[in-house]
Design a protein around this nucleic acid. Structure first.
Lengths: 172, 172
DNA sequence: TCCTTGGTAGAATGTTTACTCTACTTGCGT
DNA sequence: ACGCAAGTAGAGTAAACATTCTACCAAGGA
């Protein structure tokens, strides 16, 4: 069986992704994690720690799913990242970016802000490297974020728009 | 003095914008609205209604502030909208889009989803009209959303990136 | 065999908080 | 002057919920 802390993190991630951060009670989170309340509190001693654990786990999963094993060709890499983001949204993030949701639900928590910043920066950095667009991190992230936010409204059309816009970055 | 319902809505908007949707208790909201608890509940009979009132009010304010009195020239209109969004973020939305924050804090509330959708659609439609880019609503919104989401991280650089990307839309 | 480690189940506690209720005030039309 | 419409102040209530505590179980090493 999986490492118990992994099992907990995965369960928490799933619970927060489907129910948001405000709704689920710690008892709901216990059910999602599949352990007892005592064990849950042993590894994540407060509800906020449960949030952190879920986000750490999601960060790993997101980065590998979006940025690993990309084609060598710049344009193909770029387009594939955007495609993958579309699929990620469809499969796992119908309610939008989990990091932004977490920050929105606790705007005074500075540790959450750091987590968000680390997450976005790493995605931007890896995307820039994969497309040889070092120095264009801001534009890349802007397109990623725009796609993530508009996807719930426009679905595939959002992916297509993102790709069309991203195309121009390669020409500079 | 202002209409009392306007005064309440404005106070609520300010409270939610600065403290988020989870944190402020109804007593905090009462203080922000500047009325008694009884009056507050008279006009907004539940906490969710307070959220709706705040968002309705913000929608009006946002749309007029971003989309009214734009220059006739397409490019100037486009650039100015993005500039205005930058200022809006700096002045009023340091924590990101209030509509997304509201939905994130209550992902099961369908009325909130409708509100979000109406808000974004209207912004997109008015932006398309002002820039004579009818048919490109998706791309426009994608850039707006990207800017809104990346602004907290990159400030002015996000505005510049958005303008550079938006520039390409005018050439098609 | 026994004890330690690490787990389960779920009751108890204490705080927070949305919402209601009571009692009081003030301006205004007649 | 009077009464009513619409407000304030703030105490009270009942539920929700994060966190802790008690009691129990199972496997493995000395």
């Amino acid at each position: 069986m999986k490492d118990i802390v992994t099992k907990i993190s995965a369960g928490l991630e799933h619970a927060f992704a489907t129910q948001g951060f405000a709704q689920p009670s710690v008892e709901d989170l216990r059910d999602a994690a599949g352990v007892s309340l005592r064990t849950l509190y042993k590894y994540t001693p407060s509800r906020s720690d449960m949030v952190y654990a879920a986000l750490e786990y999601r960060h790993q999963r997101y980065v590998t799913l979006i940025c690993d094993d990309l084609p060598a060709d710049r344009q193909q890499a770029l387009f594939q990242m955007l495609d993958r983001i579309g699929h990620w949204m469809a499969d796992e993030a119908t309610h939008g970016c989990l990091f932004h949701a977490a920050v929105a639900s606790a705007p005074t928590d500075s540790r959450l802000h750091e987590l968000l910043e680390r997450h976005k920066s790493e995605v931007a950095a890896r995307a820039a490297k994969a497309t040889q667009l070092e120095g264009q991190e801001v534009s890349l992230l802007l397109i990623f974020e725009g796609l993530t936010q508009t996807w719930p409204l426009y679905r595939e059309r959002a992916v297509a728009s993102a790709q069309k816009l991203a195309r121009h970055l390669l020409d500079d």
